[in-house]
Write a protein that binds this DNA or RNA. Structure first.
Length: 275
DNA sequence: GCGATCCTGGCC
DNA sequence: GGCCAGGATCGC
């Protein structure tokens, strides 16, 4: 469900609650705890979350001893609620705070991830170590981006964007939106794409994600931030889910739906665009 | 590269 | 009952 803008919005909604002293940790029997972290999680009791960072679609809750890492997968939610709020179905993790609030992780499909890292940036966890740069990293120049893209010459541009090792945090919605902003055909292969077009693609990624963050993420069904607030980006999407627009087409690429505007997203520049 | 797979829920 | 879903990993 959540991509980078939604995760960043959740992070910002959580920040007013830190620092937060942890007074208890509860785990469900089927919580998606990875990398052998199950036995370590209860030992977070007594430590304090000093800050919350984000890396791609991962949230990093930093304590003085370890970093709690959470990925929301397709259906995960994080909510902060008063401690006496009844737990809904599919609650897998509860972190109780001294403030008498608790942080609740709810994930019906369990495609998410809960893990403990030993370092603040969590690079000791494989899924984080493999991430590409952040979209707003000043070191991510057009040249650097092109070089990273060229390692995946066989991929379609759509598949390239979904690959977290190229740029971290882009998912299905913002991949479609980024390709629209860059005026590129999602089926086009990296191999056949000029550096200038890849430069436009990087700009498209930045435009799409920045807009998403500005509007508090996209709520198509059930995404909300940690206070239960819905996002507003769904009102500004140009292609994703725009079945109401006659010029918008959809296709399936490696099992995911791509939404695009064939009139605008051309493999080669039209006369009008070249002028 | 791409399809199958991990899961549940909502909708037709 | 079948299909779809905002993700990522694992095999061929």
């Amino acid at each position: 469900m959540p991509e980078l803008p939604e995760v960043e919005t959740i992070r910002r909604s959580l920040m007013p609650h830190v620092p937060a002293q942890i007074t208890g940790v509860g785990l469900s029997a089927v919580a998606p705890v990875r990398h052998g972290s199950r036995s370590y999680l209860p030992t977070l009791r007594g430590s304090t979350i000093g800050t919350i960072a984000r890396r791609g679609k991962f949230l990093l809750f930093r304590t003085e001893r370890a970093t709690l890492v959470v990925h929301l997968g397709m259906s995960g939610r994080l909510l902060v609620v008063p401690a006496d709020t009844p737990a809904p179905k599919h609650t897998h993790l509860e972190i109780r705070f001294a403030s008498r609030h608790l942080l609740r992780y709810i994930d019906p499909r369990r495609f998410g991830l809960i893990a403990i890292a030993r370092t603040p940036d969590a690079t000791d966890l494989p899924p984080i170590a493999g991430l590409g740069p952040e979209f707003d990293d000043p070191l991510l120049t057009a040249e650097n981006f092109c070089a990273r893209c060229r390692r995946h010459n066989g991929l379609s541009l759509k598949a390239l964007l979904l690959h977290q090792g190229v740029v971290a945090g882009v998912g299905n919605i913002y991949a479609c939106e980024a390709l629209y902003h860059a005026r590129l055909d999602p089926r086009q292969r990296v191999r056949g794409t000029h550096d200038a077009a890849l430069g436009r693609l990087l700009d498209g990624i930045r435009t799409a994600l920045t807009l998403g963050i500005r509007h508090g993420g996209t709520t198509l069904r059930d995404y909300v931030d940690s206070s239960g607030q819905r996002g507003g980006m769904q009102h500004f999407l140009q292609v994703y889910g725009r079945a109401d627009q006659p010029q918008i087409a959809r296709l399936t690429q490696s099992g995911r739906t791509t939404w695009w505007n064939p009139a605008v997203q051309q493999s080669r520049p039209t006369t009008a665009q070249a002028a």
